[in-house]
Write a protein that binds this DNA or RNA. Sequence first.
DNA 1: GCGAGATGGTTTCTTTATGCAACTGAAAAT
DNA 2: ATTTTCAGTTGCATAAAGAAACCATCTCGC
Lengths: 162, 162
Amino acid sequence: MGRRRFADMNCGIAQALEALGDWWTLLIVRDAFFGVRRFGDFERSLGIAKNILAARLAHLVEHEILEKVDVGESGERFEYRLTDKGEALLPVLTSLREWSDEHVFGRGHEPVIVKDRRTERRIPKLRVVDADGRPLSRRDLRTVAGPGASAETRRLLQPRAR
Amino acid sequence: MGRRRFADMNCGIAQALEALGDWWTLLIVRDAFFGVRRFGDFERSLGIAKNILAARLAHLVEHEILEKVDVGESGERFEYRLTDKGEALLPVLTSLREWSDEHVFGRGHEPVIVKDRRTERRIPKLRVVDADGRPLSRRDLRTVAGPGASAETRRLLQPRAR
DNA sequence: GCGAGATGGTTTCTTTATGCAACTGAAAAT
DNA sequence: ATTTTCAGTTGCATAAAGAAACCATCTCGC
């Protein structure tokens, strides 16, 4: 029985994976952040099969991360553009890149560097911080049920020994 | 012909996906952040098939995101614990959750809320900011080749019309 | 010390997903 | 008018995911 979907899980990570978790999808989004818009450009940039690309683009359009815009002069010719919801993935892509830079490539071996276009300075690393800007780690956090929590989520979040 | 791997791509996102991109993997890491350590606990929490779980845990151990520790009193009994490299994924999980909270569930419908354990206040949202703390969007950024850039990466980053 | 159950997997088989290659129909370029 | 590009679709081969059954240790109760 094929792959399970996560759509019904009452969890933000699972929901994000429902939209982005398929193979290739996040690389398509990354390319979109780089300014790629056309079917053929995604195809060449990624070396992805056409049928997979078509399916992924449709999935991203369905999830309102990309929008398909007809830009044809005298007929149909499409572009895929990031929506606001898609642009909001910047912290996700950034945190993934920063993690790889530090823990996969290692400092000094980054394949790319992201700068503030205005000042030409590197952007500061993303960090999880408290209200005063002090860095927090996993142990400093406490997860509680929110307003949209399901009964199951509520049960899972009951305090227990760790 | 099976699935392509991204291991050889000279890109942080691709490298992160090589480690985390498989189906289920990120949910296993999420559970690890919640304090889950035992095979059976992951299995029950996720409802994942044992063979897939075993493969994913081995993959995460191989990538040094989890470590497998023998905690048996008089024989083998294992725990999977987050390494420092694994703990460093906190911004990734956080940015995914925050994106879902805002763009999938919507404000006021978050299934979980993450608080600073000390102050009981919600943690501020992760943002990509400049050196002075001002928020940046995709358009404010410029990506240039880093010290570890391959020839291909260098070529792709040549300025071009957007 | 011995059987019952929990733990942590491996093996087998079926169902899906992925990938390649070939094909298509419309738009642009020449 | 013909060729090339574009944006897919279709068909087929293979690899990965999932369920269920199986298995070797360990642990607990007695």
